[in-house]
Amino acid sequence: MANVPSELKYTKDHEWVLQTGADVVRVGITEFAQRQLGDVVFVELPDKGRVLEAGDPFGTIESVKAVSEVYAPLSGEVAGRNDELDASAELVNDEPYGEGWLIDIKIGDRRQLDGLLSAAAYEELIREEAE
């Protein structure tokens, strides 16, 4: 079974969310998602300042198998991006919950966090998908 840290929130699209400030969250893809993708070779991320709507694609992750879109888990403005991925896309595979993070989002409404999955709910989702 994939590693699912309990301190994170999750989406049905396999992104994780960590609240890092009063109105800032960090977003990445889960260990389960990176395993499904295979070896990541390129990551395209939005520019800082771009406004995102929850559910909209904000970038792509290209692996040796496929190109997959990544979706905004919450509405807000891109407050930061992981520029390390430009030179080291494999960080998404090596450290999906650490150095392989994708973007930071400044959210306007923290109540959006309540709509995300808990670790237990996400574990149930991936268990169902694996069947």
Rank of each mutant, 00 (worst) to 15 (best):
K106C: 02
P96Y: 03
E99Q: 13
D94S: 14
K12Y: 08
K12L: 12
D47I: 07
I29V: 11
E84M: 10
Y10P: 04
A54R: 12
F42A: 12
F58W: 02
R110C: 07
Q36L: 13
E62K: 06
S75R: 04
E99T: 11
L52C: 10
A2L: 12
R26P: 06
N3T: 14
E77G: 00
E95N: 11
E99S: 14
V43R: 06
F32G: 06
A22P: 12
E31H: 13
G108D: 07
G59H: 06
V70W: 02
V24I: 15
V51S: 14
E128W: 04
L85H: 05
R26K: 15
P73M: 05
Q19K: 15
F42E: 11
L116Y: 01
V24T: 15
V78F: 04
E69N: 13
R110Y: 00
L37W: 07
E53P: 00
Y122T: 02
Q112S: 10
E62I: 06
H14E: 01
S118Q: 01
F42M: 11
M1Y: 14
D13V: 06
R81L: 08
M1S: 14
V51Y: 09
F58E: 03
G115A: 04
F42D: 12
E90H: 12
D109P: 07
L102I: 08
T11G: 02
F32M: 09
H14Y: 03
S118D: 01
E124D: 15
E7Y: 10
N82L: 01
Q19N: 08
L113V: 10
I126Q: 09
L116G: 01
G80A: 15
Q112K: 00
Q19T: 10
Y71H: 11
K12W: 02
S118W: 02
K65R: 10
S118M: 01
P96M: 06
S63E: 09
M1I: 14
S75D: 10
